[in-house]
């Protein structure tokens, strides 16, 4: 059965992680997931707008949901920020009549209405449902890959809103990653925030958090970091460039997206997986990944 979703990309992926979109589309195609264009999609508002003004955030985000809803479609997004924003909006508008009425009053001018019929999913949720199919398609085992998987905050928390995995002991995406023969290592600070939301407030504090994360990944002898979010990935594949511990040792680790790992292990065309756009060198794990 073909599954069909409007794909909500957000702003960060088309801006700096087109390899995530491209690898997602490649994996989706191989698994027969149909991704429809999300006409009229704006920014999700994310925690930035929610921090500034709740009503503006609910309106912007509610408009996106109402658009997909008006076309009778469900929504899938590969971004934790967009996922959190859309799910949280959906939750608030569903639970709080006052906010729902206020937002619908605003949406009325655009001939839209939020009713709450569109289902909102993260791309990894969809993948998890298809794990049996993925298992069958693994042709190129990634034996020796030791992944520090970073689930990110808004995929898991608040669990009353996302409802995806155990918020304290998540295993679902790890299970997907281990289908490839890789090991998802357990690392002390796995569930800790990457710090990326603080880049707008204090790069210094954001970097302190990142340094702690990378030291934890190193302690667990990971040879790469894997994420399912462009905001987190900004920390691991951009801000981590040149990052050192207090002794001056490099803390860089190759950083990949979940979809790139799965695509490689499924033996898909490496070109659209966009590995040449990963900023931190993949050299230490090139052989394991089976790429030139």
């Amino acid at each position: 059965m073909t599954e069909e979703y409007e794909v909500f990309l957000g702003c960060a992926i088309p801006n700096r992680f087109n390899n995530y979109e491209s690898s997602m589309r490649t994996v989706a195609e191989a698994l027969d997931i149909k991704l429809l264009d999300f006409d009229g999609a704006s920014c999700c508002g994310t925690v930035v707008l929610k921090s500034i003004d709740e009503t503006s955030w609910l309106s912007l985000s509610g408009r996106n949901i109402a658009l997909a809803e008006s076309r009778g479609h469900d929504i899938v997004t590969p971004c934790n920020g967009c996922y959190g924003s859309l799910k949280d909006t959906d939750h608030v508008l569903h639970e709080h009549e006052e906010q729902r009425n206020a937002v619908n009053e605003i949406l009325k001018e655009l001939n839209l209405e939020y009713k709450g019929a569109a289902r909102i999913r993260h791309f990894v949720e969809v993948l998890y449902d298809l794990r049996d199919k993925i298992r069958e398609k693994i042709v190129r085992p990634l034996t020796g890959l030791r992944i520090a998987f970073h689930p990110g905050c808004h995929l898991l928390r608040p669990s009353t809103v996302t409802g995806f995995d155990d918020p304290e002991l998540p295993r679902k995406v790890d299970e997907l990653l281990e289908l490839t023969g890789a090991t998802s290592v357990s690392w002390t600070l796995k569930l800790r925030c990457c710090g990326s939301p603080l880049l707008i407030t204090s790069e210094e504090v954001a970097t302190q958090i990142l340094r702690e994360k990378m030291e934890s990944a190193r302690d667990a002898q990971a040879n790469c970091v894997v994420t399912n979010c462009p905001a987190c990935h900004t920390q691991f594949d951009v801000q981590a460039i040149g990052l050192k511990d207090s002794a001056g040792e490099s803390l860089e680790l190759p950083a990949l997206f979940v979809t790139q790992i799965l695509g490689l292990a499924m033996g898909l065309d490496p070109e659209p997986l966009g590995l040449e756009l990963n900023r931190i060198s993949l050299d230490p794990i090139r052989e394991i990944l089976g790429i030139e």
């Binding site: 960060a12 979109e21 009229g40 704006s42 408009r63 001018e109």
Partner: peptide, 29 residues
């Protein structure tokens, strides 16, 4: 939007343009 698309990367990866929206709708809200 918070960030603009990087078109050359999208072309290299043969990705379609990001779907459009009417900024007037957003400003009205």
């Amino acid at each position: 939007r918070l960030y603009e698309p990087t078109d050359w990367e999208r072309e290299d990866l043969e990705l379609d343009d990001v779907p459009e929206f009417d900024i007037n709708d957003i400003q009205k809200m």
